[in-house]
Amino acid sequence: MRDQIPPFLLHRPSSNSFRLEGRNLRTPFLEKGMDRLAEMIKTAYSQWEYASREGFFQKIDARIKVLFLIFFVVIVSLKKNIGSEGLIGIFVFSLMLISRLNVFHLYKRILLFGLIFGSLVALPSILNLFGEGEVLFTLLRLSTPYEFWIYSIPQEIGITKEGLYGMVMLTLRVINSLSITFLLLYTTPFPEIIKALKVFRVPDTFLIIITLTYKYLFLFAKTVEDMHLAKKSRLLREMRHRETRKWVAGRVAFIFRKTRLRTEEVYKAMLCRGFSDTITIRQTAKLRQCDWVAGISLFLIGCLLLWI
């Protein structure tokens, strides 16, 4: 083997130094996107970490929590005043606190989504261009009002009280719904949530498909991340967009091939462990007394919030 080493491998670089070029490399958008997606999928690790902490909501059975989620999201949608939405928000926030969740980290994401899907989506509706109402701030004054087809532009364009109220309500509803969902997700391991869906008579086959999808999503996210690192380790210059597209397309094909092979393997593994054509998963345990107490308490609080 020693004699077979090619001469170029015996050559040592002449210089031990380098020259800083002062120009930074840019990572192409497609590649960055792929890497970020893999990273995002892997953040579920932190979900698992929070879900396994000792906290109030973590101790409650997943079935109660899923029912709580549905009941409270309905309440959030039914309430029509800001005060009640605020009360629900405070209640969910205190549940997060006693469940020892990182509220700062969670609310950073909740508020971001709330502002995008609540405020930004409803932003145009605050103007009297789309609905009538009492103008609070005038933004523009035209010489004359315009009317054409079904549209009418008033002489005074401004923010209406009703529009503003509608936007705040929508934002609060989005924020509250998200907080309740995050509370469930961060206090319950994902497999438990899936099992809890049995309460709603979701077929076992469907549940096992979701479980498998969730599990393999992680494995493939890891593969995508490794592929990105493997390329990074041999990359010495900026990649042209054409090269990046070629690389991403190649890697997508690789993932497809790997997924197909993995599907066959998983199916064979299921066959050799007795799978025929029906799937039966373990029945969930009976609810404990503390779960009943928590469930009834949450139900009563929900009714109270509905009544207020």
């Binding site: 130094s17 020259r19 380790s233 990359l235 010495l236």
Partner: peptide, 10 residues
Amino acid sequence: KDKGFLRFFR
């Protein structure tokens, strides 16, 4: 991220 150092290191 610097091209010069990246070439040297990688």
